[in-house]
């Protein structure tokens, strides 16, 4: 009797363990599994916001901490003729359009952006892959740009549309894009950055202007920004998940 029960339990345990291990990779393919796991993202976001609030600043470092070579990732050199033409002219004619749910749409030249009050910060860039690099960024706090554009009451997110095409040649273009909610977008360290380590932003790092959102992972910090749109929800543009990598399954909330 005890022997039977023992054999039954041992066997059930073995079967369960085998099913678990072989099933895990299969489970990852199931939509309901990734949807259920993605729900955790909301829990993480709420919990982190509870601790960090709106204002807590990302740690800032000293000049001695700056990496000799700041690693670049993602697009390193946008291939489009339009971008090349801008680069050849040192981005003199580059403009950042600000529109969507705003009372005053803007079209900012790089000159206009540089003329606004700036912030310089030595911060740590954390890639979703796991590595970190420290660099000094200078740029216009995004909240100042937003204040000038005057978001309407139904504004909830700020979306960034970029000049780098992520699709391979021969398939329809898929331009990089990203989005932040208003908490992260109006954070004091969130910049439209145009300088890295005292130099004009290099092309591999998003010239002439990229986003810095220092409490988030690297993929949130869109490079080669051409257009900023204030929106009420994330579903109406791109793949509907708020960003290029989000459309490939990465979490929209990237504070961890």
């Amino acid at each position: 009797m005890a022997d039977d029960r023992r054999r039954f339990l041992t066997r059930s345990a073995a079967v369960a363990a085998a099913a678990l291990l072989s099933g895990c990779s299969g489970l990852s393919e199931k939509k309901w599994v990734s949807d259920a796991l993605s729900e955790v993202e909301n829990l993480t976001r709420r919990a982190q916001r509870l601790f960090a609030g709106r204002q807590a600043l990302a740690p800032e470092f000293t000049k001695a901490d700056i990496a000799p070579v700041f690693r670049a990732n993602g697009t390193l050199d946008p291939a489009s003729d339009d971008y090349r033409a801008h680069a050849a002219k040192d981005f003199r004619d580059w403009r950042v359009e600000v529109g969507g749910l705003v009372e005053r749409p803007l079209s900012l030249s790089m000159e206009a952006l540089r003329a606004m009050p700036s912030r310089t910060q030595i911060t740590r860039h954390d890639c979703v892959e796991g590595w970190s690099c420290i660099g000094e960024w200078k740029g216009t706090p995004l909240r100042l740009v937003l204040a000038e554009a005057r978001p309407r009451n139904d504004a909830r997110y700020v979306a960034f549309f970029c000049a780098d095409n992520m699709a391979e040649e021969g398939v329809p273009a898929q331009y990089y894009y990203e989005s932040l909610d208003l908490v992260e977008a109006t954070h004091p360290q969130t910049l439209l950055a145009y300088e890295l380590n005292g130099q004009a932003l290099p092309i591999e790092h998003g010239a002439p202007v990229r986003l810095r959102a220092e409490r988030q992972l690297g993929y949130k910090m869109a490079k080669y920004i051409q257009r900023i749109e204030i929106v009420a929800d994330l579903g109406s543009f791109g793949g509907g998940r708020g960003g290029y990598w989000e459309d490939q399954g990465y979490s929209w909330y990237a504070g961890i």
Partner: peptide, 23 residues
């Protein structure tokens, strides 16, 4: 390793000698 948690609790970085050490 979470950049947002580092902003909420910078002491974590001090305790573990930085993000890469923590990793």
């Amino acid at each position: 390793m979470s950049p947002t948690m580092d902003s909420a609790f910078p002491a974590l970085l001090w305790i573990f000698a930085g993000r890469q050490s923590a990793r």
